[in-house]
Amino acid sequence: MKSGDLDAWRQLWGWELLLAVSVAVPGVFLLLGDQPGWQKATAAACLAAFAPLYVFLGRPAVIRDDARRGAVYVALMVVLYVPVALTSQESLFTLFGLCAQCFIVLPSKWATAAVLALCVPPVARVVAVSSHPRQFFNVIVVITIAVFFSAVLGGWADRVTTESRMRSDLIEQLERSRAEVARLSAERGAQQERERLAGEIHDTLAQGFSSIIMLLQAPDPTRNVRLAVKTARENLAEARALVAALAPAPLDSSPFLESMRRITRRTGEETGVATAFATDGDARPLPPHVEVALVRALQEGLANVRKHADAREVRVTVGYGRREVTLRVADDGNGFDPGDSDGSRGVEGYGLRNMRSRVEQAGGSVGVSTAPGRGTELTVEVPT
Rank of each mutant, 00 (worst) to 15 (best):
S131N: 09
H132V: 11
H132E: 10
H132I: 08
H132T: 07
P133G: 02
P133E: 09
P133K: 01
P133V: 02
R134I: 09
R134K: 11
R134D: 11
R134V: 13
Q135F: 11
Q135Y: 09
Q135P: 06
Q135V: 11
F136D: 05
F137S: 08
N138M: 10
N138S: 02
N138G: 05
V139W: 06
V139A: 07
V139I: 01
V139Q: 05
V139N: 06
I140A: 07
I140K: 00
I140L: 06
I140N: 00
I140P: 02
I140Q: 06
V141W: 02
V141C: 03
V141Y: 00
V142M: 08
V142K: 03
I143V: 15
T144P: 02
I145H: 02
I145Y: 04
I145M: 02
V147R: 10
V147P: 06
V147F: 11
F148P: 06
F148G: 13
F148C: 08
F148T: 12
F149V: 07
F149L: 11
S150T: 12
S150W: 03
A151R: 01
A151Y: 03
V152T: 13
L153I: 13
L153F: 09
L153A: 11
L153P: 03
L153G: 08
G154S: 07
G154A: 05
G154Y: 04
G155E: 06
G155K: 14
G155L: 11
G155H: 14
G155F: 14
G155I: 15
W156T: 14
W156I: 12
W156V: 15
A157W: 09
A157D: 13
D158H: 12
D158S: 15
R159S: 13
R159E: 13
R159A: 07
R159Q: 13
V160M: 06
V160N: 12
T161M: 11
T161K: 09
T161F: 10
T162C: 04
T162W: 05
T162D: 10
T162Q: 10
E163G: 09
E163M: 12
E163Q: 14
E163S: 11
E163K: 12
E163L: 15
S164T: 06
S164P: 00
R165D: 03
R165C: 00
R165P: 04
R165F: 02
R167D: 13
S168K: 06
S168A: 14
D169T: 02
D169R: 02
L170R: 02
L170D: 00
L170Y: 01
L170F: 02
I171V: 09
I171D: 04
I171A: 01
I171P: 00
E172S: 13
E172T: 07
Q173W: 00
L174T: 00
E175L: 11
E175H: 13
E175A: 15
S177H: 04
R178K: 07
R178D: 11
A179H: 15
A179L: 14
A179T: 15
A179N: 15
E180S: 12
E180K: 12
E180Q: 13
V181T: 10
V181Y: 11
V181P: 01
